[in-house]
């Protein structure tokens, strides 16, 4: 039981990060019917943006009075630059191919991945970079479970970001336009929704969330590498599909589930097999619910 609860807490923490990345996949898929395979790299680059911001803001972060502001600024910086990166990727690699065969943007996405990985490798070097925790670590114990203030920070800020996203999509004008576009592109265009603008906004939001996830990932594991985007992106994409791709609450649940499964797999089986465990459960769930946990069941009309 102790192992179970402990791994649950650890799994939920990393699951929050997966969920943040998965949101980007699922939003883009819902609106543009596009698997943005470069999204994992945006997450990875976001972590490096965070590292860069840290190197500038070190004096701010080291004085106790302004440390909170410093952490906030690191996040803001990483999220802003990641958001811009996402918009640029969409503009140059996906938009010209909007009417091309469905697999064409998949290949440019792979090209973008190579490009981003190698740029980061050339700028920061191929070896692991140590990433600071940014905050003074405090460990709490509740019963047999220990957790840190960092885990609380990750969980709290992820939940905050997800709630803001939910409110934005439900209640803002742009959010309404996004839902309209996801529902029926032609009808949305007829009532004056600007497809290009909304797709840009989608990439903007999704990439900002991935950037935030990248900084959290760095803070949590204390080391980042230009390869990290691949596996994290893969798992986040799995999470998005698990929840039902295109479905925003689905991505959140899927992310948490993948994180928890991975945590439990690492706790009970072995850390080498934890990834197998996550993929295996995914395949099983999809066999019984072919459009994911919360995905709409599409009835084929003839």
């Amino acid at each position: 039981m102790d192992v179970f609860l402990q791994q649950l807490v650890n799994g939920l923490t990393i699951g929050m990060i997966y969920a943040l990345i998965a949101l980007g996949y699922t939003m883009v898929y819902g609106i543009a019917q596009l698997i943005n395979f470069a999204h994992g790299e945006v997450f990875m680059v976001g972590a490096y943006f965070g590292l860069f911001a840290y190197s500038i803001l070190t004096p701010l972060l080291s004085s106790p009075g302004s440390a909170t502001l410093g952490v906030f600024l690191v996040f803001l910086f990483a999220m802003t630059l990641s958001a811009l990166l996402g918009v640029v990727i969409e503009r140059f690699a996906y938009r010209p191919l909007r009417h091309a065969p469905r697999l064409a943007p998949l290949i440019t996405a792979i090209g973008v991945s190579f490009l981003l990985q190698n740029i980061i490798m050339l700028v920061f070097g191929p070896s692991d970079k140590s990433f600071p925790s940014l905050i003074e670590s405090v460990t709490y114990t509740a019963g047999s479970v220990t957790f840190t203030n960092l885990q609380i920070l990750i969980a709290a800020s992820s939940v905050l970001l997800m709630i803001s996203l939910h409110v934005f999509i439900r209640h803002s004008r742009t959010g309404k336009a996004m839902r309209a576009l996801a529902d029926d592109r032609d009808a949305a265009n007829l009532v004056g929704v600007n497809t290009n603008r909304i797709i840009s906004v989608t990439f903007l939001i999704g990439s900002a969330l991935a950037g935030a996830g990248g900084v959290m990932f760095g803070m949590y594991y204390n080391t980042i590498n230009f390869h990290d985007g691949y596996l994290a992106g893969l798992k986040a994409f799995t999470a998005a599909v698990l929840g039902g791709i295109g479905n925003i609450p689905g991505a959140m649940i899927g992310g948490l589930l993948i994180g928890v499964l991975e945590g439990l797999g690492a706790g009970y089986l072995s850390s080498e097999w934890k990834n197998v465990f996550a993929f295996f459960i995914l395949i099983l769930i999809l066999l019984f619910r072919p459009s994911g946990l919360l995905g709409a069941r599409v009835v084929k009309k003839v």
């Binding site: 140059f92 690699a93 010209p96 191919l97 091309a100 065969p101 064409a104 290949i107 440019t108 792979i110 090209g111 973008v112 991945s113 190579f114 490009l115 981003l116 990985q117 190698n118 740029i119 050339l122």
Partner: peptide, 20 residues
């Protein structure tokens, strides 16, 4: 060192030029 970077760029360029 720029080899794989250029490779990625070439992949994007080729696909944009010939989407089919």
């Amino acid at each position: 060192a720029y080899r794989m970077l250029l490779f990625g760029a070439a992949m994007i360029a080729m696909m944009l030029l010939r989407p089919q």
